[in-house]
Amino acid sequence: MLNIAVLVSGGGTNLQALIDAQNRSEITEGRIAVVISSREDAYALERAKKAGIPTEIIIRKTYASQEEYDTALLEILDRYQIGLIVLAGFMTIISGNVIRHYENKMINVHPALIPSFCGEGFYGLRVHKAVLEKGVKLTGATVHFVNEVCDGGPIILQKAVEVLPDDTPEILQRRVMEQAEWKLLPKAVALFSEGKITVENGKTKIREDAI
């Protein structure tokens, strides 16, 4: 059984999607072993506690250096024998040291169709505001592996979502969550835990029987 760590900073809606999928037995070869938060007041911690999942809190500013923070984070991950890290709205920078330690074992969900509306500064409502300002007709979500380039890792899954004329950033954000993020992230975790994703030359391959 693959041990999964979910890293959070806020409300934890993507965490809840993973918990619900796990409860529906959609993730059968992995389990959420720990939820790690960058904030003491993140509601995601309550979601984890209600689901009986252990929690840890690690706050960057309490460490004198990035190296000390990295050591503490890696110690937590090692203690829970983590085989997959899921970034679910985690707002603390993950260093190259940690990324290299978990190469192709760390995934993130981004609320747009990469390579559009991604990279430094594109997060949360900023993404959806930019989508509306550009006037595109389709947006969506992407689950990808994390590397040292912001939103630059190999793409695992994508799903398009229609942009409607009367959308606000908040309305569009909710639709992207409901129609794409909450579906893609559990699917990607299930595929990974079943060993059905490989990375070759910077691109992912998913076993055909997994689609």
Rank of each mutant, 00 (worst) to 15 (best):
N14C: 09
L125C: 04
N23P: 03
P154D: 06
R39V: 07
V161F: 04
I32F: 00
E120H: 12
L125P: 03
I93V: 14
Y43D: 14
S65R: 04
S38G: 10
E181Q: 03
M1T: 09
M1A: 07
R174V: 12
I76R: 02
Q179W: 01
S38I: 14
A72K: 10
I59T: 15
L18P: 02
V161S: 01
E194G: 03
T204H: 07
E120K: 14
E194S: 04
L77P: 04
M1C: 07
F122V: 00
Q22S: 14
F192A: 02
N147H: 10
I171S: 12
L84M: 02
M177D: 11
Y69G: 01
E133N: 13
I58R: 10
L125T: 04
A210L: 06
S116M: 11
M91A: 11
I107L: 14
Q66L: 12
K129M: 09
I206P: 00
D151T: 00
F117H: 00
P165S: 01
Q66D: 07
N97S: 15
K159D: 13
D167Q: 09
G10K: 11
F192W: 05
V199I: 06
P115Q: 12
Q66M: 04
T139V: 01
A72F: 08
L125S: 09
N14A: 15
E68M: 08
L157T: 06
T55D: 08
A44F: 03
P115E: 10
K203H: 08
E162W: 00
V109M: 07
V6S: 11
E68H: 04
H128W: 10
D167F: 06
E208C: 05
E133R: 03
A64C: 08
G140A: 06
K49N: 13
I59E: 07
L77F: 14
A188N: 15
I76L: 15
H128R: 14
R126C: 09
I171P: 02
G140P: 02
G153M: 04
G11W: 08
K159H: 11
K134G: 00
E103K: 15
K105W: 05
K196N: 10
G89C: 04
H101T: 12
Y63T: 02
R126K: 11
I114S: 00
L7V: 08
D78W: 04
K187Q: 15
L15C: 07
D70I: 08
N147C: 04
V149P: 06
I94D: 04
V161G: 01
V146R: 01
L164N: 08
R60A: 13
H110V: 04
D41S: 11
Y80S: 01
L2M: 15
V127P: 01
S37F: 09
L87F: 10
D41Y: 10
K205N: 13
L184G: 00
R207G: 11
I19W: 12
L18R: 12
E181G: 02
E40Y: 06
I27Y: 05
E181T: 07
Q22G: 13
F192V: 07
V127H: 03
Q81C: 15
A21L: 05
V6D: 13
V109L: 10
L184W: 00
E67H: 12
D166K: 08
G89V: 05
V86M: 09
P54M: 03
T142K: 04
D167E: 05
Q173N: 12
E67V: 11
I57T: 15
S65I: 11
L125H: 09
V199C: 03
S116P: 03
V109P: 09
A44R: 02
M91T: 11
I4N: 03
